[in-house]
Design a protein around this nucleic acid. Structure first.
Lengths: 156, 156
DNA sequence: GTGAGACTTAAAGTTAAGTTGATGTCAAGC
DNA sequence: GCTTGACATCAACTTAACTTTAAGTCTCAC
């Protein structure tokens, strides 16, 4: 059996985390992850970096940007193992965001389901498509579809 | 009361749809939407373009790229009002994608909930974080978090 | 102690989905 | 019939999150 090393090279970390070396360097440059250096200047990561990368991946799933993740991680005092309270706060915030995104997608799905077979695209009063049309004298067309959710997180 | 015009300038279409003129031009360049031209070369959109834009917006919510949306729209014979069957096929495909994304987010949420207060970040066997770690002799670390869902749609 | 392969940095490239700017034309109310 | 605001095109810029490339350095198994 191979002995588990106490530190990992960037290649080892990449292989075990599934995150590309270039991405890991990128995260380091953005302050999401730290490393020691070998005598020759190569990165040496503690094993905790694996958790850190998993954390980053999970946070991205939630729809956070790297900057937001960096800010969240920065709140965990740097060389301290996060406390239960640290973690509770982060995960609660995440769950709220997740719930919102899930609700938005479910709403869209339900509206879609209600439309199946109705020939929506040619109808005047479909919930999904009767949007912004026929509002000529109102000066402020409805924004049903746009209001569905956090479209913004995809592109800032 | 103003009379509803049979065609819309790009500015009118933008105002009523909530989509910026530059975005509409962009969609036209990408083949997602068409227009006639006035004698002087300005765009004139049929009122159906409002539905088209709503369609595009809804599709983006589902996580489709503009290219995928273009392909979907291209299946609807160009100057024909889509049939019930056309629409059924599209919306069924969308719902499948939505279901997948919803399921992935719910799984993440549930794992998060299971973790609240457990001090995950410092534990060895949390579902969320015990990923790719300790797999030194396996040569193929697990990819739990990465398998959560379509991370890819965010960047292609 | 050496050679292959992993690592280093910096800069430039990539993709999606647009926005912004420059420069010039159209449309319409007075 | 003119001026003002909307519109036209085209190219360049933007942002996020990386990847790729180039040129050079380190490591370590033999």
């Amino acid at each position: 059996m191979a002995v588990l090393p106490t530190t990992l090279s960037i290649g080892e970390l990449a292989a075990r985390s599934g995150v590309a070396p270039s991405a890991i360097r990128f995260y380091e440059a953005r302050g999401l992850i730290g490393s020691q250096r070998s005598a020759g200047g190569q990165r040496r990561f503690p094993r905790a970096s694996l958790r850190r990368l998993a954390f980053i991946g999970a946070a991205q799933q939630v729809g956070l940007t790297l900057e937001e993740i960096r800010a969240a991680l920065a709140q965990l005092p740097d060389q301290r193992t996060p406390t239960r309270r640290d973690w509770q706060q982060l995960s609660a915030a995440w769950r709220d965001r997740l719930e919102l995104r899930i609700a938005a997608l479910e709403r869209l799905r339900d509206d879609l389901s209600g439309c199946v077979g109705c020939g929506c695209l040619s109808l005047r009063r479909c919930r999904l498509y009767n949007v912004g049309d026929g509002a000529a004298d109102e000066g402020q067309g409805s924004r049903l579809v746009r209001a569905f959710g956090s479209r913004g997180h995809l592109k800032g």
